[in-house]
Amino acid sequence: MSTAATADASSSGDTTEGSVRLLTLQSEDGEVFEVKETIATQSVTIKGMVDDDCATSTIPVCNVTGRTLAMVIEWWNKHEIGAVSNEKELKEWESQFDTIDDKSDRDDVYDLLMAANYLNIPTLLDCCTSAVAEAIKGKSTDEMREFFDIKSDFDEKEEDALRKENQWAFEN
């Protein structure tokens, strides 16, 4: 996956751009982004805040780093209505998120997944969950535990029973 381009809106200093209202988002590490309200409201969470008039001052996005937030804003820009002329181009652009080739990709996807979940961005969440699902679907129980850093809380007997019950899935 490519690292995110600088978000278009971050260079703008005004709080309004024509008739479009700008929102100020602050990432966990203090980076500030100004984003058009029409774009940022792709996040259901932010839309809720705008609707409730809670978005008048800087919105802290505490769980998301500046790097990730820039990627999120890039996603929003691409998904703004009218930003990309055809569906195919958008799918092609999105496909960079579909594959996880190395560790940095993986971290990016995790970051985005967390951000998408936190900001509640259904399209991004869908894309990231399928990417992660694609990466882990063929893995064994032990690989999954390693992947997600999980310690088994089953005793040996319980785990054997579970494996036996689902024998078919373990066979091929």
Binding site: T129, A133, M144, S152, D153, N166, A169
Partner: peptide, 20 residues
Amino acid sequence: TELFLCMPIKSLLIFKSVSK
């Protein structure tokens, strides 16, 4: 849960034994 929804049934059966 969102992740599991994208999984094939076989993976889900295997993942049952990851943790409680």
